[in-house]
């Protein structure tokens, strides 16, 4: 078939281009602008070249935050994905239990980030918080503001509480779309519970799991609000993730050049890791 070329079609995509330009490209370019120049206010700019990038990449502070971020995302994925699958497998398929479970699962997702932070901060305080006080009374002194391990446990548990539901809901949607005949055929074929999971449920959940892993990775890698509310990055810098560090640098110290350079590096890392996840997880599809 002959393709018809009509340049008027470009006008059709113009609104989208404009929208994307204002929502993404122009702000990003501002950051690029800051990252290669130095400014002392008064709209005076001096060319800095790659200086800020070198400075950021040479600083131990950046690499420490990056390692903390990677460790956090790894822990979050290692807990939330299996836990989410497990809960989804055990959710009811029929009857009154379905809406009840779905509502309970959706509740944490509806709470604003900073409120989640506040809830857990209060809950874990050693003086008045139910969990913090309770653990201390039971002989496990718990102080997230002083002990880095306690701070990490608090933030990880909080994130698991807040976001595992998302994984559960995605997996559940994948599971209920499996036709009954698959389970019947597996029964007739004498498949064990494990084989049903391995050969029917897991392959059918693959698509939604990919989305769940990508979303949870990106979100956990960019986490800011909750640790900011709970620990403020401490004790010391034990929960200072890249985003917290970035805000300290840009807003606290007003180092706009290095902060802009760091934003761009941060953005490229998220993009690169997401691309790797996606490629690895979809490469089997072509075979």
């Amino acid at each position: 078939m002959d393709k018809t070329w009509n340049n008027k079609a470009w006008f059709m995509v113009l609104p989208v281009l404009l929208l994307v330009a204002f929502s993404a490209v122009i702000p990003l370019m501002t950051v690029v602008n800051y990252s290669v120049q130095d400014t002392f206010g008064n709209n005076q700019f001096f060319w800095a070249g790659t200086d800020w990038f070198t400075q950021v990449l040479d600083s131990a502070r950046f690499w420490d935050s990056l390692v903390r971020n990677l460790a956090f995302s790894a822990v979050i994925l290692a807990i939330q994905i299996p836990l989410g699958i497990f809960i989804a497998l055990n959710m009811p398929r029929h009857g009154l239990g379905v809406p009840v479970c779905l509502i309970f699962m959706a509740l944490p997702l509806l709470i604003p980030w900073n409120v989640v932070g506040t809830i857990w901060q209060l809950l874990c305080r050693a003086d008045i918080g139910l969990v913090g006080w309770g653990l201390t009374q039971l002989g496990f002194p718990f102080a997230y503001a002083a002990d880095p391990v306690d701070a990490w446990v608090t933030i990880v548990v909080m994130d698991v509480w807040h976001w595992t539901s998302l994984v559960v809901l995605l997996c559940y949607a994948g599971l209920v779309s499996i036709p009954e005949a698959y389970y019947q055929a597996a029964k007739i074929d004498g498949a064990s519970r494990l084989a049903v999971f391995r050969y029917i449920q897991l392959p059918k959940m693959k698509r939604v799991l990919l989305i769940a892993i990508l979303l949870r990775f990106m979100d956990s890698f960019m986490i800011y609000t909750e640790p900011f509310v709970v620990t403020g990055g401490g004790p010391g810098s034990s929960t200072t993730f890249l985003s917290i560090d970035l805000v300290k640098m840009a807003v606290g110290q007003f180092d706009l050049g290095p902060a802009a350079a760091m934003s761009i590096v941060y953005f490229l890392i998220v993009l690169l890791l997401s691309w790797i996840f996606y490629t690895v997880m979809t490469q089997g599809d072509q075979a």
């Binding site: 036709p179 005949a181 698959y182 019947q184 055929a185 007739i188 050969y199 029917i200 392959p203």
Partner: peptide, 13 residues
């Protein structure tokens, strides 16, 4: 017994 269903059931992977 063996049963063949309306829609083919195969183990994709």
């Amino acid at each position: 017994i063996a049963q063949v269903f309306q829609f083919p059931v195969i183990y994709d992977t």
